[in-house]
Each structure stands twice: as C-alpha cells, then as structure tokens.
Amino acid sequence: MATAPKFDQVKVGDALPALVLPPINRHQLALYCGGSGDHNPIHVDIDFAKKFGFKDVFAHGMLSMAFLGRLATSWVPQGQVRKLGTRFTSITWVGDVITVTGKITGKREEGGARLVDLEIKCTNQNGQDTLQGDATVVLN
C-alpha cells in the first residue's frame, strides 16, 4: 500500500517516483482486450489493423491510461484519487518502452479538502509523449 506524502511536505514542481515499464508486447494487448472488454480487433489482429492503414496492431489508449493510474496509486492510496484524465497524443506500438512520470503542478484547498494537482504522462523510448494527463489527489 502506498504511504501517502503529507500536504505540507510537498511543493509545486516536485516529481513523483517514475514508473519504467517493460516493452509493450502482443500478449499484453490480448490480456487487455479481455480484461478491459475493449474488443476492437485493431489492437490484436494485424490483418484488421493493416486493412485500416496501420503498419501493425497498437496498444489500447486505455492500457496506457491504466499506467497513469498505477503511477497515481503508487503515490497515494486509491481512495485519495479524485480525478484522472488524459489526452492520447500519439500511438503506442508493440515494442515501445513506456516511462510514466508525474509532477506537482498545484496545491489548493477546496471544500475543506487539501488537493494536489498533478501532471502525469507516458513517454516512449524516443522521448515522445504518448499520453499527456493530469490528476487531482487529496493529501492530508
């Protein structure tokens, strides 16, 4: 379980511990197809992907968003995550090595809760952002 940092101990600009993931492989995409219920064949069937103009299958955007979630819940307990969102900015291909990073962009109090805003993103081995996300968590 994550031991959450305290509101008073963090400041804007602080980085969260990064998450470096193993290369995306086809087996993971098959597992995510079943686990998420997203059965779009474009992520698992190369013939289908080619028919629609892609060179290969590619990862579900939501698989990478799950990595953003993992970063958030490795920093604070699940119940303290208030919001999680992302833009999917480029395609994640089989073999890509994704690093998930985050940093604090804001601290505020709202309705009696002490909130910390985070920028979190996925970046591939070429330094290109694949997801540009954000989260809001409660810190005590």
């Binding site: 474009i42 579900h60 955007g61 968003m65 208030r82 919001k83 999680l84 969102g85 992302t86 999917f88």
Partner: peptide, 16 residues
C-alpha cells in the same frame, strides 16, 4: 470500428 481512435478520457471519482 477500424476508423476510431481514442482522443481523450477523463474520470471523476465520487465514491469507492
């Protein structure tokens, strides 16, 4: 379905 991509996704968590 072969023509779609996911542009954005946002969640707001209200209760466990």
């Amino acid at each position: 379905i072969g023509l779609i991509l996911h542009g954005e996704q946002h969640y707001e968590y209200l209760a466990p």
